[in-house]
Amino acid sequence: MLTTMNPASRRRRMTLLLGAVGVAALLAAALPELTAAGAAAVTAAASSATVDIDNFAFTPAALTVTAGTTVTWKNEDDSPHRIGDKNGTFKSAALDTDDSFSHTFAAPGEYPYICTIHPYMVGTIIVKPAGS
């Protein structure tokens, strides 16, 4: 189930969040996106994060984000993979090489997931409350 958030409330939360503890990880994830454009760009980039799929593994295997973040899985492997979480909250189609899948995490919590084609491939998205 894809969840979306009102853009205005997301902006508010992101502003709060920028001053908060635990933002370091988010910023680190966003660093490749950083340009001289400054803080505005950081804010936008901070609401998304990426998990790479390669060599039959998710990197990072555990990703911590804040509520409202859109996580994108990109399949860079030579084999197809398919994302499915333990509780059936989100599920991708089979991702061929270079395909990707995104899901926005509205609710805080831990989301363990697997590749449903290769169930030994596991990962977790940890969603912290916005502004925590």
Binding site: K86, I114, H118, P119, Y120, M121, V122
Partner: peptide
């Protein structure tokens, strides 16, 4: 059907 690889081996 499969056993996901969270706490034990991920196997069919």
């Amino acid at each position: 059907e499969f056993q996901p690889g969270f706490k034990s081996a991920g196997l069919a």
